Amino acid sequence: MRQRTIAKRVELVGIGLHKGVPVKMILEPLPSDSGIIFYRSDKGVSIPLNIENVVDTTMATVIGKNGVRISTIEHLLSSIHAYGIDNLRIILDNEEIPIMDGSSIGFCMLLEEAGIKELDKPKKAIVLKDVVQIEENGKFVRLEPNDDIVFDFTIEFPNQAIGKQNYTFTFNTQHYKEEIARARTFGFLQEVNQLRAMGLGLGGSFDNCIVLDESGILNKEGLRYKNEFVRHKILDAIGDMSLLGMPVIGGYFSFAGSHKLNHFLTKKLLNSTHAYEVVELGQKVSNTEKAFSMQKVRV
């Protein structure tokens, strides 16, 4: 299995979730072993995607360099990972990735418009050999060995519209589009008001977020999935794990995980050299290669 990039340059314009300002985003192909590189065209600063460049995980995953930041990267990264893309340049003229409809399906459509191109170098993956876990106040995120790429997430909220939800997702690209990509981000009305008082969440609306109050869901169209909330947490986790720079062959398990815990988990994994090995995916068809198969996905 070889590394991938996109076949042609594509672009879109959208609104940032927190600042509420328009941002133009351009995706460009890159050669093998380039990785994912963000570029702020308004600042002239490139920021390679890696865990060392994470500067904040409070409301989203944020990377930065030399005082220049790029926020809310997890939804875009989730779709990039889902299509097995290893090398890509992401050009922005502001500090946020467009929020689109609050899910990653718009980014999937953009990648399909660009097309997927295989490159000359073999694709690499992290194979888990031991358990790595982060815990905090009853919450946890954990990686453990598995022949497949699995995400198992549990959430529990006192709000009756959410309650306790669990979802297990065995990754492949087509199933990602069907089961995960359309799940939107969500927030509570009281928190939305607090964020706006802080100058954040200014781009949020019923068009890009599920909003709840004590009585339930305020969006007139309702949910896309009965358990859309936990599916979106898996969408986020896929994006956060992609900061490792390659797929992780193994299981991700979480109870009430967050961007912060995911970041700590990626750091702990890379510091636990006994817990993983990096392999090249060869010619033999493996579970991982089947997971990233593009045969059923229109490109």
Rank of each mutant, 00 (worst) to 15 (best):
E221A: 15
K268V: 14
K123H: 08
T61M: 06
I99E: 09
K290W: 01
L261E: 04
V127L: 13
V285P: 00
R224F: 06
M25C: 07
T288P: 05
A125T: 06
L12W: 00
P48F: 02
G102I: 13
K268L: 14
L202W: 05
L27W: 07
G14D: 06
K117A: 05
G187T: 12
S41T: 13
L49Q: 05
P29R: 07
S34G: 09
G138R: 10
E221Y: 09
V150F: 02
K220D: 14
G201S: 09
A237D: 01
I238A: 04
L202I: 05
S258V: 03
K43E: 03
K267C: 09
K260G: 12
T168S: 15
K226R: 10
T57N: 08
E156A: 14
T58W: 05
L281D: 05
I6T: 00
I85H: 09
D147Q: 12
H259S: 09
E179R: 10
F188L: 06
I6S: 03
G250K: 08
I15F: 07
E11G: 09
N262Y: 08
P31T: 12
I91L: 12
K267H: 08
I37R: 08
K220Y: 04
G115M: 08
E95S: 12
I155D: 05
V68I: 11
K121P: 01
S34Q: 15
E191V: 06
D130N: 13
D33C: 05
L195W: 11
E156Y: 09
H259V: 03
K117V: 00
G251F: 00
E135R: 15
F38S: 02
G282A: 12
I70H: 00
G20F: 04
N262M: 06
Y167Q: 01
E144H: 08
P158Q: 10
Y83V: 01
D148T: 02
L111A: 03
N50T: 10
L261T: 00
K124G: 14
I47G: 03
R142Y: 08
F151C: 02
D56Y: 08
E156P: 04
R298W: 03
E95N: 10
G84L: 06
T170Y: 14
K19L: 13
I91D: 01
H175A: 15
G257S: 07
G163H: 09
G282M: 00
P31R: 08
G239E: 09
G16V: 07
V230K: 05
F206W: 00
L243Q: 00
I70F: 02
L212E: 09
N271E: 15
I80V: 15
K24F: 00
D207C: 06
N193F: 10
L223K: 13
V297Q: 02
I217Q: 06
F169Q: 06
V13K: 13
N227A: 08
I116G: 04
F171C: 12
N146Y: 11
I180T: 03
A181K: 12
P31I: 01
V150A: 01
V13D: 07
I105R: 09
L17P: 05
I37F: 02
H75Y: 10
K43H: 00
I73K: 03
L269Q: 08
N208E: 09
L143S: 11
G204H: 03
R9N: 13
F169E: 10
N219S: 12
Y225G: 04
